[in-house]
């Protein structure tokens, strides 16, 4: 079978011929590097879908190389919205900055009584392996490079709703700008996630949390109310 891989030095796809045998993309890449082309560059780790190192795009869709069975004619490219360092190896630092900006951690610990139900509530969200697939699939980055994005928001949701969190407001306050309200709810992140996480749903839930902490949907505010001084005053008239 023949697959093509986007090479960064020429910015053109290069084709490689592989034995017609069922194999994972990661195994194929490792084989190519060892026997055909030592310059082909990619990153990998655990081979078992848990270290988050080997995500790429195959025929336009995000895949973990270690969990994708390579097919004849596949077109392999690096993740979107990440600076390409070389071939399929990308710079993830900018994406990781979103965790820092959104303060995705436990702010203030309070001892709590947790149950299996509480465990279930954040089970999926905490399956995240930071592979950056959702970040690559998110169309908001095409227009807004500073968007906090799916994985960081899912992570803030997990901490903000943890019973042990004594200051959820601090997290919610930090995700208002370039955050929860800027998502288009297109659901591409949910489709891309190899661990079955649903960032779209988490973001919708975070909008609800935001309203409870007194934040408002900025687009709704400007569209419906116009200039504040001419706004509707419920206490006037009547």
């Amino acid at each position: 079978m023949i697959i093509s891989i986007l090479r960064s030095d020429t910015n053109t796809p290069q084709t490689y011929t592989l034995e017609d045998k069922e194999t994972t993309l990661l195994h194929a890449l490792t084989h190519i590097k060892a026997t055909q082309d030592a310059t082909l560059t990619f990153t990998a780790g655990c081979r078992a879908s848990v270290c988050g190192t080997c995500a790429v795009r195959v025929n336009g869709k995000e895949q973990l190389s270690c969990a994708y069975k390579v097919q004849d004619g596949d077109v392999i490219e690096p993740l979107n919205y990440h600076p390409v360092l070389r071939d399929l190896k990308v710079d993830k630092n900018q994406a990781k900055e979103t965790l820092l900006k959104s303060s995705a951690w436990l702010q203030s610990f309070t001892e709590a009584s947790l149950t299996p139900k509480d465990e279930k509530q954040s089970e999926r969200q905490t399956d995240c392996i930071l592979c950056d697939s959702c970040y690559s699939a998110c169309p908001v980055y095409a227009v807004m490079p500073d968007f906090l994005g799916p994985f960081a928001l899912t992570r803030t949701y997990r901490y903000a709703t943890d019973k042990r969190e004594g200051n959820a407001k601090a997290i919610i306050d930090n995700i208002q700008s370039n955050g929860v309200w800027d998502c288009t709810l297109c659901g591409e992140c949910t489709l891309a996630c190899p661990k079955g996480i649903d960032p779209k749903m988490d973001i919708m839930m975070l909008r609800g949390e935001s309203l409870q902490y007194g934040h408002t949907d900025p687009s709704f505010a400007t569209q419906s109310f116009g200039e504040p001084s001419f706004g509707f005053d419920p206490n006037s008239g009547f």
């Binding site: 951690w105 436990l106 610990f109 001892e111 709590a112 009584s113 947790l114 149950t115 299996p116 509480d118 465990e119 954040s122 089970e123 905490t126 997990r158 901490y159 943890d162 042990r164 969190e165």
Partner: peptide, 22 residues
């Protein structure tokens, strides 16, 4: 680990803190 937020699996025993860790 409990204090930094590790999402341990839990028991349904009505207790608090690490006493609930399965």
């Amino acid at each position: 680990l409990e204090s930094i937020g590790v999402p341990f699996s839990r028991l349904d025993n009505g207790k608090i803190g690490t006493d609930t860790v399965a």
